[in-house]
Design a protein around this nucleic acid. Structure first.
Lengths: 336, 336
DNA sequence: CGCCTCCACTTAATCGTTTAAGTATATTAG
DNA sequence: CTAATATACTTAAACGATTAAGTGGAGGCG
């Protein structure tokens, strides 16, 4: 409503002067500047983001690509905390965020087109099918991109240490005496690859043999599929003493299947999650899990992306590893 | 990158013609139009949202105000599903969403200023302190506004029927034989008022007397505070047979406190949640709760808001009530 | 005194789009 | 055959900001 023009009029100067005064340019006299600032404040002036973006090609908007292939989108605690930390870090730097999707209304568009349409200054890819050509297109564009839990060449990547996390969990349950361990993992993504590697390496180093039938593919965040696999594992007379789930949420689904089978956790069988969402501490027993620093994941991705946006020549496009820590919940029991 | 100008050049027409062709204006010849459309497609043209918004004062962007006073923001399943449905309904209509906050970078701003800065076409207020003067300012502005679970005069409001939900829950547990019912409610908001009213009315109609000490104020989505209150309720020798929690999430925290006290749910004490988030079906026992139609809440708010944005003269600014349904979980047992 | 520099501003162009108003050509009416 | 009308365009201004280039005057220097 109130524009530079209004302020210029009231101050008896040109709009250029007002713009420069407001932006802290050096070639403005001291009393002129303070008068302009005062009037701007009085009138409740607020810049027009569209006009500014049009002229400067900087929208102070960052895109967030967040595709949960199975479910609604941001409905899970892990994602929503990551998202929230992206949001608040962006806000701290004066950026807003825009969800990137395909298709504006009827029109079908690619993710990249959506980004161009809104003129986002960069994109955080927080969860997506990284083999999707549209995602590849985005990553190969000239837009600054930061990915979470996936590495692309010459791009910022923020990763949680899946290998180490899984390693720590295996050692934890092994120390509790478990040797018959089953692993339900998620879809084959780089996250899954890291975790599987960590799992197998730790088992090997500890001299634990895991039969193939105990390595099963489930679905991330899908208690249904994980419950079904759990049931199968339990039906086998030679059953594991401990089951690893793809994540805490599906672990809770697994607990349910275990209870339905008339067994108790951890007395009859132990369970291990992954993520360390708040919920994992609220349920009973508290889950043994690897607590990812979801806040750091989002915050770092946003911070590094903004760094690249604002200092394109000097920003280092490498990977950052975020540490996690073991949550020793009661869902794993000591066996002799 | 590719602008109207480029298309105009390639087609040998003016930018005005291209604009009109692309926007389906009637005064463009058939072959000209199809040629323009073809070239635009070939060049991968995508409009520039900033330029368009600058000229038309329509950003195709809707603001979402989402302030969770206690926690990070969108970290809870109830909120995140509402948000996700707002997002996807907006997307269906060609709108993007922007989170509204105070303060862009260092600069302190009001919610309304943020809205003006981004030029949002309207705002969904999904969760906020409705007594906050900044929220009031927003609601009293000329921006289209839709609120969720709160009513303002002459504004679109989408509400879940808290009174009926609570009524149904009370009748459900009463039918199971419970008469000693405790209620932990959330902060005093209009949601809480509705639920309390429903609770007291149902109790009165059923002839159930509830002592004051069993009506306690907790905090929404805060398992900690609810656990503490639960402990207090359990310590009293004259303890309730059933506890109502402000929501499913805090109910799960309450279950934990109950277990810690050496009691089982539902054998020793029954528990009731509210919301019906997916999690409530995953835990064991499944929670008895009122399943709110969170999808409808968000979808309707977005749809009605967009209706008002696009047809300001004919849109009806009233309240919509969203139905929910009883989820008869195993967390309430039949007592004699 | 004449020239240069510096300061504090203004002018004017520009970003990409939309749209009211204008224009040239073809068509129809009288 | 002229005049009115319709069609299919073009012209040009505008949205609100930014910014390179220009300007006028004060002050400094030799």
């Amino acid at each position: 409503m109130v524009s530079l023009k209004d302020i210029a009029q009231r101050c008896g100067v040109s709009t250029a002067t007002v713009s420069k005064a407001l932006n802290g340019q050096p070639d403005i006299g001291e009393e002129t500047r303070s008068r302009i600032l005062r009037i701007a404040d009085e009138l409740g002036y607020m810049a027009n983001a569209s006009a500014r973006a049009l002229k400067t090609k900087r929208s102070y908007n960052i895109g967030v690509l967040f595709v949960d292939p199975m479910h609604g989108g941001l409905a899970h605690e892990f994602f929503s905390t990551v998202l929230d930390s992206i949001r608040s870090e962006a806000e701290r730097h004066g950026y807003d965020i825009t969800f990137i999707n395909r298709g504006l209304g009827q029109r079908e568009t690619s993710y990249l087109q959506h980004c161009r349409y809104r003129g986002v200054d960069g994109v955080v890819i927080a969860s997506a099918d990284f083999t999707d050509p549209m995602v590849t297109e985005l990553v190969q564009s000239d837009l600054p991109v930061a990915t979470i839990d996936h590495v692309f060449n010459d791009r910022i990547a923020v990763l949680s240490d899946n290998l180490r996390g899984m390693d720590a969990l295996v050692r934890f349950v092994a120390a509790k005496g478990h040797r018959k361990i089953a692993l339900i993992h998620g879809e084959p993504t780089s996250v899954t690859v890291g975790r599987l590697t960590g799992f197998h390496r730790a088992c090997e180093e500890l001299g634990i043999q895991i039969p193939d039938k105990w390595i099963r593919q489930g679905v991330f965040h899908d208690p249904k599929s994980c419950s079904a696999i759990t049931r199968e594992l339990l039906e086998d007379p030679d059953r594991p003493t401990c089951i690893f789930f793809p994540d805490d949420y599906s672990c809770i689904g697994g607990l349910n299947a275990i209870h339905d089978a008339g067994l108790r956790v951890p007395e009859d069988i132990s369970a291990v999650g992954y993520d360390g969402i708040p919920l994992s501490r609220i349920v009973s027993p508290v889950l043994a899990t690897w607590r990812q620093d979801t806040g750091a994941l989002g915050t770092l991705a946003a911070a590094r992306l903004i760094e690249q946006i604002e200092h394109p020549r000097t920003a280092i496009l490498d990977r950052v590893i975020v540490e996690g820590r073991l949550q020793e919940g009661g869902s794993v029991r000591q066996i002799c």
